[in-house]
Simulated scan of single mutants.
Amino acid sequence: MLSIGEFSKICGVSTKTLRYYAEIGLITPDDINIDNGYRYYAIKQLKKMLFINRLKSYHFSLEEIKALVELEEHQAEEELAAAFTCKRHAMQKKLNALAYTVKQMSTDILNLEQGIPIMSYLDKIDVQLVETQPMTLLYSRQRMTSADFETGYGTYFSKLYEKIAIDKLTLLGKPMTFYHSPEFNPVGNDTEFAIPIKEAVTGTRDVPGTLCAKSVLKGAYPELTSVYANLMEWLANEGYELVKSPYEVYITNPNEVTVPEEIITEVYFPVKKIATT
């Protein structure tokens, strides 16, 4: 048997953390002296603690770790592999995003060294006036927070694609997102997920063709704020105003690209010319 101090030292985990783990049922002492409350761990528990440490290093939450420990104890290798694969994919996306940010920063440093203003990249965002065609959209409208975006987009688009497949509907375009909220609300924004289809069925709405200011982003989604800012400046300079909710069209599937630079997103601002007096 090992005292809690010995167990703590061998595993590199504080006694405070071990006590908390015991409280939440993650790993409990093998024996507790009823006279003095001293906690003791069995030698065989070292392996379990090291497994928990490894899962922590993989950025699993404690709730996830509890579930994975149970899988490991039942020798559910296939389920463990699936969980690890999913986590690896999520971490790779974060690494790609970080690599993109580092590359972007390097470009900014080079430009500054050459006397080029750091925000000059906005001038390279092209704006076009286009007439869009009428569309029938299969849609789902949700109240979404910023934290919901990454998982929510996949969830709601998947449900729409599932309905298209089950009902044998005719797909006519790429997935789209409309932003109906008049201002940003951290509690939740009125967000519509939509996919153009041929048939008018329950859960669809018709969108007439309209004049739009359009820009295309080739890069990571956080850069979309720059596109929106540039579009608003263009509207002010050219004498147009936004008349309906802006929307995005996702030309590429982010799960099918290897680097953020390959992500292509179109941004549309339905507009009209401001009347002059």
Rank of each mutant, 00 (worst) to 15 (best):
N185R: 09
G173W: 02
G188M: 06
V187L: 14
F184W: 07
I164N: 03
G154P: 02
K174Y: 09
F178T: 02
K163G: 00
E162H: 12
F193D: 02
F157C: 10
F184E: 12
K168I: 00
L172K: 14
D190W: 09
P186A: 10
T191C: 07
N185S: 09
H180Y: 13
N185F: 03
K168G: 05
D167T: 00
H180P: 02
L172N: 14
L169S: 05
T151C: 03
L169E: 10
Y161H: 11
A194P: 04
S158E: 14
T151E: 15
D190Y: 08
L171H: 10
F178H: 05
D148Y: 01
K163H: 02
E162W: 01
L172T: 09
L172Y: 07
P186N: 13
Y156M: 06
N189Y: 03
K163T: 14
D190E: 12
G173S: 13
T151G: 13
S181G: 06
F193K: 04
E150P: 00
L169F: 07
A165R: 15
Y179T: 02
T155F: 15
P186D: 08
T151D: 15
A165N: 11
Y161V: 06
K168S: 15
E183N: 13
V187I: 10
L172D: 14
I164Y: 04
I164A: 08
E162V: 02
E162N: 12
G173C: 09
F193Q: 00
F193L: 02
A194F: 01
I195A: 06
P186R: 12
F178S: 08
N189F: 05
P182I: 08
G173H: 09
K163D: 01
E150Q: 12
P182K: 14
E192H: 01
L160F: 04
S158Y: 10
P182Y: 08
F178P: 02
F178E: 01
T170I: 01
L169A: 07
F157M: 14
Y156A: 05
I164W: 06
G152E: 03
P175D: 04
Y179V: 02
I164R: 05
